[in-house]
């Protein structure tokens, strides 16, 4: 496998009217990797994905997808990309089989009938092939949409919040499938709001209000945040969150069950901040979670955007 990146974009920018929705985003994903794309609502994830698959023209920036120039080779790129939209994008008034058949025709797949049948078989939908896609439950819609996005065996798969509103069992299966596809060499860029899903990715990218704030493996992102954390155990530890969060040197404090999780940028200041409660609550050093990092990053970013106005 060549070691040229599957996706490589630099300085990608998109404006809607006066608002810069995606601001100089750099992103590199190597072949066969699963990259999680995270960020608060409205931070520009969907917009970035659309630019990568050629559905939006960037206002600035450049990049290559599978070595093809993003600005000149949009059509060639579309042939090799599978894109699963945030909103269910198949035809709800066509049956499951008819939807797959349509996709197969559009991509001019050979052995169309067999492929559709295989896909239905794999999905476990053979018996319901004639059911209208619009009548499927959320989880099944997601499965169908994924099947439609990978039927033409794309080299890159872009998934926009593929598991929103899907039950844990179905999510687990979904992710197993994505890992299986990646193992075959497919590159996956998947946006999500779930931390557990972020942890299933090889690497993550965090965008807030259009700005890419962190990239790398989970370890790298956590280390890069410079946060340290403490875990507090003791009577009513969980009730102290609001109070402790007001203290200087504390970025955030959150109850976890009966214990308390606090974190801040400076370990010494953090220790000092919890000192008043140290007599009854036992604080031990802990690993900051990905969630800590993201919330911390997001708060920083919100401040910036407010200042900017």
């Amino acid at each position: 496998m060549s070691k040229a990146p599957a996706i490589s974009v630099r300085g990608l920018t998109k404006r809607f009217g006066p608002r810069t929705v995606v601001d100089h985003v750099d992103l590199t994903v190597m072949p066969g990797r699963i990259c999680g794309f995270l960020g608060p609502n409205g931070s520009g994830k969907t917009t970035t994905l659309r630019m990568i698959c050629g559905l939006l023209i960037p206002d600035a920036g450049e990049g290559e997808v599978l070595g093809l120039d993003l600005s000149t080779k949009r059509r060639a790129i579309k042939h090799q990309i599978g894109y699963m939209t945030q909103k269910f994008g198949l035809f709800s008034d066509l049956s499951i089989a008819e939807n797959l058949e349509f996709i197969a025709r559009v991509y001019r797949l050979d052995r169309r009938k067999e492929r559709v049948a295989e896909t239905l078989e794999k999905l476990g939908l053979t018996s319901r092939a004639d059911q209208l896609a619009g009548k499927l439950s959320g989880g099944w819609k997601q499965r169908l949409a994924l099947a439609a996005a990978v039927m033409h065996e794309p080299k890159i798969l872009l998934l926009d919040e593929p598991t929103a509103g899907v039950d844990p069992q179905a999510r687990r299966e979904f992710w197993d499938q994505i890992h299986a596809l990646a193992a075959e060499g497919m590159t996956v860029l998947v946006s999500t709001h779930y931390m557990d899903e972020a942890e299933r990715c090889h690497e993550i990218a965090y965008i807030a209000y259009g700005v890419m704030l962190a990239r790398g493996t989970i370890g790298e992102v956590i280390a890069g945040s410079g946060l340290s954390a403490l875990q507090g155990e003791g009577p009513s530890a969980d009730r102290l969150a609001a109070e402790i969060e007001q203290r200087p040197g504390v970025a955030m404090a959150a109850p976890f069950g009966t214990s308390l999780h606090v974190c801040g940028p400076d370990p010494v200041a953090l220790r000092a901040a919890v000192e008043p409660w140290a007599d009854r609550i036992n604080f031990t050093p802990a690993e900051p979670s990905l969630e800590d990092v993201f919330i911390h990053l997001m708060r920083g970013a919100t401040d910036n955007s407010v200042e900017a106005r």
Partner: peptide, 14 residues
């Protein structure tokens, strides 16, 4: 309106 256009345009359809 139904979001199917996005899907159509992401395919090689011109």
């Amino acid at each position: 309106e139904q979001g199917t256009m996005e899907n159509l345009l992401a395919t090689p359809l011109r």
